[in-house]
Design a protein around this nucleic acid. Structure first.
Length: 295
RNA sequence: GCCGGGGUAGCUCAGUGGUAGAGCACUGCUCUGAAAAAGCAGUGGUCGAAGGUCCGAUUCCUUUCCCCGGCA
């Protein structure tokens, strides 16, 4: 038995609620696919599930916020835990909104084994600053002609990473974007919420976060770790950090959180729409039928 | 009431005698060790209203309405 249920959807669509409900019914355990809930002490702003007593949750609170974490690590961690759950005869439910993390598992992405190299990146970034991104892109194309078609020439991070891999492996990055054979027998469920509805839910949730003490949470975090951690490059944390540094009012920070969360939700929807295996559901009953059939 | 400043995209504002632009918002999209990240593209305006001058007015002139500041 290597069945895996995957639940995706935009932020604030009700993934947590649905996965807990399913987990209770099918004796399952939940594996998070969320790049920010990975971090300890980032609770309110990441809308981390609070009640973990009944259902085991995995890959929450596994790193301190001063640690960088990446897809490749996630894939390793998640596969291990999913297998472990299956070995114990229980059903794993993978749930979360980080599309790339989900894809890494579902499509068994073969992520190039080159770690992020901060020194090299800094060096290339400096070059970008001095000579322009186009110059660096041409450098990449010289080493990897196919990259011209595959890599977004105007996206600094993409170009830099492609160059990083090409340089360190001495093989073109464009030939290293592969995926392996499926790892699991998967049912992918997507939660579909009408736009207006989702917008309301997002706005409400942001207001709740503020009410529940997000400002305090962020203040404690930056006192402890400083404000420049990669983990804090997250909606809710960026804006509140600006507020705490007197760069904007709380009102403005809150309004920006709402807009940024909405933009994020739309990016998620675009991302998940590209995955044709996802079965979009509008009710719990539909979900139950799908799961029943799958098991 | 008088004197100034202003009314241009949903918002904040540029601008020109040859029917208009930016940022943000909005819509669509990209994504293989930073992904709540990083990027790309697109839609959108009878230029407050009415007259006049001119081949031609959003731009110049007159009148009018509205907003902001000062004086009374």
């Amino acid at each position: 038995m290597n069945k895996l249920i995957v639940i995706v959807g935009p932020t604030a669509s009700g993934k947590t609620e649905l996965s807990i409900k399913l987990a209770k019914k099918y004796n399952a355990e939940i594996v998070s696919a969320d790049s920010r809930q990975i971090y300890r002490e980032m609770d309110i702003g990441t809308a981390k599930p609070l009640d973990l007593r009944e259902i085991p949750h995995w890959l929450l609170d596994i790193k301190n916020p001063n640690r960088a974490y990446t897809v490749a690590e996630y894939k390793k961690d998640a596969v291990k835990i999913i297998r472990d759950i299956q070995k114990r005869g229980k059903l794993p439910i993978l749930t979360g909104g980080t599309g790339l993390y989900v894809k890494a598992i579902v499509e068994n992405l073969d992520i190039p084994k080159i770690k992020a190299n901060p020194l090299l990146r800094a060096k290339i970034e400096k070059e970008v600053k001095e000579k322009g991104l186009e110059y660096i892109f041409q450098k990449l194309v010289k080493l990897d002609p196919e990259a011209a078609y595959v890599i977004d020439a105007k996206n600094p991070r993409r170009v830099i990473r492609a160059l990083e891999i090409t340089l360190l492996t001495k093989k073109p990055f464009s030939q290293q974007r592969k995926s392996g054979m499926p790892l699991f027998d998967i049912l992918e469920i997507g939660i579909s919420v009408p736009n207006e509805n989702l917008k309301d839910r997002i706005n409400l949730r942001v207001d709740e976060m503020i009410k529940n003490g997000l400002v305090n949470e962020v203040e404690n975090l930056i006192n402890k770790y400083g404000s420049k951690q990669q983990a804090f490059d997250a909606i809710g944390y960026r804006e509140i950090i600006d507020f705490l540094k007197n760069k904007k009012t709380l009102e403005k920070a809150t309004a920006e959180m709402k807009i940024n969360t909405w933009h994020y939700a739309k990016r998620q929807i675009t991302w998940f729409n590209a995955d044709k295996k996802i079965k979009w559901i509008k009710s719990y009953k539909e979900t139950k039928n799908l799961v029943q059939q799958f098991l």
